[in-house]
Nucleic acid binder design. Sequence first.
DNA 1: CGCCGTTTGTGAACGAATGCACAAAGTCGG
DNA 2: CCGACTTTGTGCATTCGTTCACAAACGGCG
Lengths: 268, 268
Amino acid sequence: MSSPADTPADGTPDHGTLPVDGMPGQMALPDEPEPGTSASGKPLPEATIARLPVYLRALYTLAERGTGTVASDELAAAAGVNSAKLRKDLSHLGSYGIRGVGYDVDYLVYQVSRALGLTQKWPVVIVGGGNLGRALANYGGFMNRGFKISAILEANEELVGCQIGDVTVRHVGDLEDVVKDSKVAIGVIAVPAESAQAVCDRLVGAGVTSILNFAPLVLTVPDGVDVRKVDLSIELQILAFHAQRRSAERFGQVPGPAAAVEAQAVEA
Amino acid sequence: MSSPADTPADGTPDHGTLPVDGMPGQMALPDEPEPGTSASGKPLPEATIARLPVYLRALYTLAERGTGTVASDELAAAAGVNSAKLRKDLSHLGSYGIRGVGYDVDYLVYQVSRALGLTQKWPVVIVGGGNLGRALANYGGFMNRGFKISAILEANEELVGCQIGDVTVRHVGDLEDVVKDSKVAIGVIAVPAESAQAVCDRLVGAGVTSILNFAPLVLTVPDGVDVRKVDLSIELQILAFHAQRRSAERFGQVPGPAAAVEAQAVEA
DNA sequence: CGCCGTTTGTGAACGAATGCACAAAGTCGG
DNA sequence: CCGACTTTGTGCATTCGTTCACAAACGGCG
């Protein structure tokens, strides 16, 4: 826990050549807050947690570009948020910036990763080897940082045995074995809505406590299981709402999709 | 409020055979609020807008099951939210429930659809014919309600000409033509991060004002263009955070993915 | 060594969203 | 026609999140 032996950026910080993955060499910290709690002992605000991955991605991009330190303004711009918000978010993790200078990129990558629990690789099982499952498996550089695909499972016999990335598709019957053998705690559901609840039940039964659901339905799970959903069409519908709203402002009355474009074309 | 000529469920409601698509027969309304504004003239809360698609999906499910009316409790349960929240959300659209009874399902489907601007079909162009683009095109019943895929565009010559669902993949060079010809107002970016900004610029240049971005980077757009992003890995990272937090509660110290499952197995 | 410009971290004001609890408004049975 | 029961719609208190604005802290320079 303690052992404040070395400073964050130890003596000669080797910016430029950076170990983008894993924690930098010997970065034991002054005092690190408990996982999941802010520096003050209070739990991290949910809104902050949701933004940390965005910051992390921006930080990786900066790191790859060789940026050693970054000010909150720049990082905020790269992440697409307000700089005050960014500073408050980061302050919940601890005081990891240097006044008058900014944040050490590598150091912050490590701190944010640690806060999110990504210093180790979580084994993940993807159920569903269709287009969506394949897209997920190939999400590449970002899926792989902090996660490892233990298996891709599929009911369709024809797909079993296929290679997706460096993972071979196995039959969904192996679900329980995979979860047990690889100590999988996170399951991803990428199957049609009809079979989603059944898959969910099996995942939970096998011991999975975190589920990411891509199927368009509300899953029922027992207490203690964490479900998050990603709906590919909800965001589209929100866009439609705003588009309608914008075009309704130009005209007096109800617009319709086509009118939206005409209005836009007229003004351009 | 005014002109109570026809009740929502007119005389003999033909529940069971329902025109799931489109607005029910002759449901002219007492007074409909402007698109994008609540019944009181104030704009709809953003949080409400984000939940309307969820309600809509739950309503469609109920409608297919032949449910004629539904109480806020049931609908809330089906949508996975608090019933008070649901009622408040719906009240922003207008007073479309019947006290002591509940909501007429078909009628509410129409009202929510109208609020979201889904009474007409928005033409959408999907850029990227990879796994993700295909998954989107096949999202089926929910992608199609309120949206119509004008084209799927792809740079890889080998994929051009393929059939995805009932749409033929065209070359990305046709982007401007497609947008112009079909009066597309919504573009979906499903290409690798490297080319996403370039695609975005072309979409905006062609007149698209709403963009749904699946590429893992922050897009830069001029004012007046609405961008929403869906990041397949962010939700996973949030799950990792909570999983870490849960397992940290059981033990005293920093856990790691494997420990999480062990803890879970022990208690089960 | 002390001053100056810069940038963080945060208290405080504001605004948005949630959830409670209940009156108003409807149905249904008698 | 009335009274009991059900369910909506909403005022209110509270919690959560955002934004402002500034003091405290840092590096660098003369």
